[in-house]
Design a binder for these strands. Sequence first.
DNA 1: GTCTATATTCTGATAGAC
DNA 2: GTCTATCAGAATATAGAC
Lengths: 168, 168
Amino acid sequence: MSLHEVARRVGLRQPSLYAYIDSKAALYDAMFGQAAKALLDHVKSWTYSADPRQAVRDGCLALWNFADDHPVEGQLLFERTVPGFEPSPASYAYAQEFLRFNTDLLVAAGVTDPGDVDIFTALIGGLLSQQQTNEPGGDRWMRHLDAVLEMFFYHVDRQRQTVMKGRS
Amino acid sequence: MSLHEVARRVGLRQPSLYAYIDSKAALYDAMFGQAAKALLDHVKSWTYSADPRQAVRDGCLALWNFADDHPVEGQLLFERTVPGFEPSPASYAYAQEFLRFNTDLLVAAGVTDPGDVDIFTALIGGLLSQQQTNEPGGDRWMRHLDAVLEMFFYHVDRQRQTVMKGRS
DNA sequence: GTCTATATTCTGATAGAC
DNA sequence: GTCTATCAGAATATAGAC
């Protein structure tokens, strides 16, 4: 979207925007930072089950809920749709804290192998990505969340068993 | 990339490109069609194991191999990185045939539920996407392919068992 | 703070000579 | 087929009046 269109939507002329922003890149960066903070606040204010694995599921639901309600913010955060845009360290800090929050949920659920965290990220990210790009707002992929989580934790448990065997 | 840059790289001036293309959009479409055909030829000329589930794994390896060797084509085919670009039906036909080829591999491996095909697409797509965007050419995510396939087929078998139980 | 006017640069695309 | 020259439009950004 051009700055001309941005200005039109807020009832201003395009040059007037420069009373509020330094450049278009700075505008993107501010949007990224606000979106990341909003996502972080959203998942932190979510209600989580006492059971750690249900809590992981709750975290997925929180992410899904945010992505459904804020598709544009989700696109800016998770897809690389703006050519050449890289968030500043300050804006990226919120995104990193979001990742840490999710990792903590996984660790509490018994996921200790960093490789398994990578797998989890890829699986949930793949599911969410398919949903958002092919059927935004729908549930064609989201309804498979429980199945995917079940097979993931099956893998985690099997992995742990193997490690135990190796140690005994 | 601007047409000026395209022309520079092939040793021409920018207007001379119009002896070969009708518009920039047509160039994108031709690239998409060629990339989809190249991917289709690649996976069709791949060697597949007799075991149907190993053949599914082989199909994933073929896709991975192509994405590693042709990252730009992979980006054009699988990500929506060019604003406003939609492939023409003629160019998209190859991509559809690729999807059909993969679905056939899955069906041969006992995946009958269309929902499981969706899950498979999401899981493998998520793995490939993470790999390509975060560590192109590396293996940080690709080395988890076997684990993901194993948990996927665990799910498929469990699903089938449940169906059998329901019928008996 | 907001405006008009404009600078500057880049873009895809066309005209016409050779 | 390739070139020079140019068009027409859009983009970000700045200058300066009010």
